[in-house]
Design a protein around this nucleic acid. Structure first.
Lengths: 218, 218
DNA sequence: ATAAATTTAAAACGCTTGTTTGAATTTATG
DNA sequence: CATAAATTCAAACAAGCGTTTTAAATTTAT
């Protein structure tokens, strides 16, 4: 409480760093506290001491990213031109600020978000959406402004699908490396993946009208 | 070995059905054999008796879907018109045949595929890609034929991103229901999601050229 | 320098995991 | 009907889990 200096924060931070890495790689439930503390070279009990519980640790890991990412994104959006490409760029630029934590942080962040949506951790998504309700709304409105050809519901779905493409791409990055290397001899890293994603997402949101359903009941 | 009739297969099938459901809902690692056998109302040891191990059970669950889905997809592709919309429709039609197993099977199947890519279960993806190498190639070539505006690498990426959109959408369907209901008062089911996905995927693959990167290094 | 507060450390807690075992039971065959 | 094979069952296994406890060590404040 009183002495908030280096030595104290170190253990806490070490835990966060390695928890982040392992959560993204293996998921929340498949990563044990012992795995985290062993890699972080800290005592097992210090997790419960510093964070209370595993659940709280999970939220803390995500908070660490969001606290960096969200303000940065808002800042970039404020300075951005009022067109789609610039807006999409803001998003990827803001992702890149996470690299100050460590390399691959952008990937890990997206994977965590994805796991927050899909793993039976509904509380995580609700936590994000309530903690950053205002920012999320601001972001959505910004996209809404630069996509006048889409109504709000259409935009919502396209953003969701784009998020899926991003999350899945980052989640399967190791698989993609394997495939790509055997198919084209080209190795792949996070930057390569983002380079592929940016134009895809731009195109996905830019498309004016979508082909109508051609079948009766789906 | 000898009596391959109803009673014998029943336990095996009961396990498969409930394992499928729980794996899709919670992931492989987060689902215990005890959870499966309790829901299936069979003895715990029968999993190892019939399938050998949990790992083999996971493969068996996916095999069950693939054995239905793949031939159906190939069949539909053979009969389809040589254009993109028809090809995409084949995919969703083939998904729909899984509903003969039980409702929501299409969703569970896609979620399982997604988990096979992202969960540290690389063996699952390799299993799919080696067991269905010929079919996968055939499918890719069919898409390649109806998207002459895309080279093979571009097509690979777009298909991957579309798969991500699908997988993520199905994985987050419960979250989507929650959001959608509070935002538009509209409830959502798998069919609704597919209706949203079809035009998105059509548009994603149809787009001729993609916007070029506007920044230096990503 | 001493007392208080904080942080580490090791051990144990009860619980759940996948898997194995050996006997009981059901099923199929001669 | 008896015999053999196939299946089910309850019980136990070792190993791993999150968490708690107890005590020692270290840092901070008086």
């Amino acid at each position: 409480m009183i002495g908030e200096h280096l030595a104290k924060l170190d253990t806490k931070t070490k835990i966060l760093i390695h928890a982040e890495k392992l959560f993204a790689k293996q998921g929340f439930n498949s990563t044990s506290l012992r795995e985290i503390t062993t890699e972080a070279e800290v005592n097992l009990a210090s997790v419960n001491y510093h964070f209370g519980s595993k659940k709280t640790l999970i939220q803390a890991v995500l908070s660490r990213y969001l606290a960096l990412f969200m303000p940065q994104l808002i800042k970039e959006l404020d300075q951005a031109e009022n067109n789609l490409a610039s807006t999409v760029n803001c998003f990827f630029n803001a992702l890149r600020i996470l690299d100050t934590i460590n390399s691959d942080s952008a990937k890990n962040f997206l994977m965590l978000v994805g796991r927050g949506y899909s793993e039976s951790q509904g509380h995580l998504r609700r936590y994000i959406q309530s903690s950053y309700a205002q920012e999320l709304n601001q972001i959505f409105e910004h996209f809404n402004r630069v996509t006048p050809h889409l109504n709000k519901e259409a935009l919502f779905w396209r953003l969701h699908f784009c998020l899926g493409a991003m999350v899945f791409t980052m989640s399967s990055s190791s698989a993609l490396s394997e495939i790509s290397e055997s198919d084209w001899g080209a190795s792949i890293n996070v930057n390569h993946l983002m380079q592929k994603l940016v134009p895809f997402i731009n195109a996905s949101l830019a498309t004016q009208t979508q082909i109508n359903l051609t079948q009766g009941e789906v």
